[in-house]
């Protein structure tokens, strides 16, 4: 996509400037359809939900865009809502921790297999990763149902039926099941890139196997752990489908609570305020991840790309590579 340079044949800053202006225009033209789409269907909705969070709910359940107030934000302080947020945070944390504990040895095993075995195992991880999430939650629902196969099996073995569905345990199992691969993949990437001679060096320097792991392997794969934690925590905190299918009334989480405000409860301003809160929380989590990830091996992937005309103006350091 080179700029059409038809400037006069004398070299000079003016010609260079004209080429830069032409390139800027070309870039803007290329970006504008997508940018416009995002503006209308993402930025404006984002603004609207923020506006709604300061609106008034009328007695009929409609939303009046007047009488701006912070009632909805104040309502977040109610015991019920604080309880819901706390429960969501707790379940999301529990899910994240379980995913690390389950996923780390799993990823370690895969990453240390010979190359051809590793490729096959990775495909086996990718399949659930890409598989329809709803179907996977349904599979858990089906398996754990009080008249489902698991229960039937336990009954036939003489342990009696079990009632696990609609409990926080079921929700946790469902979330770990849903998001485990989100943890395994970044862990795998970090472990696969691991320079094992470093562990060997640690062993050579009198570290035991366990010490070498804690002092060398684990710190070097930290960026993978952090990335995985964010990838698991963020969707579990805002999860709506999993608790809705596997949880009961006692496991009302913030995602379902927001949905409820826009449906049966018809309190859009409160739902909007909770959404804003959720978005801010997610952005903070992601920003924290990016900060801790930079400098580490995969977070700090160099952004400077190969040199090319036009970018040199803004990136002098990479421009000259004689």
């Amino acid at each position: 996509m080179g700029p059409a340079r038809r400037s006069p044949p004398t070299a000079g800053a003016a010609g260079e400037e004209a080429a830069a202006v032409a390139r800027r225009r070309q870039g803007m033209l290329l970006a504008s359809p997508g940018a416009l789409y995002l503006l209308i269907f993402f930025v404006v909705p984002l603004g609207l939900i923020t506006v709604y969070s300061f609106a008034t709910r009328t007695s009929t359940g409609r939303t009046a865009l007047s009488g701006w107030n912070v009632e909805s934000y104040r309502a977040i302080g109610d015991d019920i809502i604080v309880g819901i947020i706390g429960r969501s945070a707790w379940l999301a944390t529990l899910t994240t921790v379980l995913c690390v504990v389950v996923g780390y040895p799993f990823a370690y095993y895969i990453a240390t297999r010979p190359r051809h075995v590793r490729a096959v195992l990775l495909v086996l991880v990718m399949i659930p990763f890409w598989t329809n999430a709803l179907v996977r939650v349904f599979a858990i629902r089906f398996l754990l149902g009080s008249n489902g196969p698991a229960s039937a099996l336990s009954e036939s073995l003489g342990f009696g039926t079990f009632r696990i569905l609609f409990t926080p345990t079921a929700v946790t199992i469902g979330m770990v099941y849903s998001f485990l691969t989100f943890m395994v993949l970044p862990l795998y990437v970090a472990l696969e890139r691991m320079d094992w001679s470093l562990t060997e060096a640690a062993r050579d320097l009198y570290a035991s196997g366990a010490k070498a792991f804690w002092k060398v392997t684990l710190p070097l794969t930290r960026s993978g752990i952090v990335a995985g934690c964010v990838l698991v925590f963020v969707p579990s905190f805002g999860s709506y489908v999993v608790p809705d299918i596997l949880g009961g009334a006692k496991t009302l989480l913030i995602g379902s609570y927001i949905a409820r405000q826009f449906r049966d409860a018809r309190n859009w301003p409160l739902g909007a305020a909770l959404s804003v809160l959720l978005i801010v929380a997610m952005l903070v989590a992601v920003a924290l991840n990016q900060r801790s990830g930079s400098g580490a091996e995969d977070g700090g992937r160099p952004r400077g790309r190969r040199r090319g005309p036009g970018r040199g103006v803004a990136e002098p350091a990479t421009a000259e590579a004689s």
């Binding site: 269907f41 909705p45 984002l46 939900i49 999860s239 709506y240 927001i258 959404s275 959720l278 952005l283």
Partner: peptide, 16 residues
Amino acid sequence: PIVIPDITMAVMLLVF
């Protein structure tokens, strides 16, 4: 849009 939870994206678009 990748980062924010589905449910917030959903209610944003509903309101929009």
